[in-house]
Amino acid sequence: MEKYLDILVFTLAGAAFPLIAVGGGLILRRRYPDVEKERAYESGELPIGDARIPFHISYYVFALVFLVFDIESVFLYPWAVIYLHLNHVLAFLEIVVFVGILLAGWLYAWKKKVLSWM
């Protein structure tokens, strides 16, 4: 319980700190709003169109491959913790099979050239 309380307090304090810091500067700072000042910066030119443009598909493929390996690491953590208490040969072979399947997928992604930048 104490642990969760600590995490909660740290989260709230971490969120409150920037608000206090930004608010605290209000005494010191002045504000002169101006159209030019509030325009999005585009190397001094007038901004052309909306900035939120669609992006290349390769970003999403990277995200997919990342997800696969991130979940792999979640499986590897518990295995690594109790490895010394397991039947070593069996535990080792199991993880070789598990990592091997993932590496086959990784090689497939490499051969399909989704791991290189377009």
Binding site: V22, G24, G25, L28, R29, R30, R31, Y32, P33, V35, K37, E38, R39, A40, Y41, D50, A51
Partner: peptide, 11 residues
Amino acid sequence: LLAKEDFMPGG
């Protein structure tokens, strides 16, 4: 940084 003007970009 404390004294610097604080404004939000349009859009």
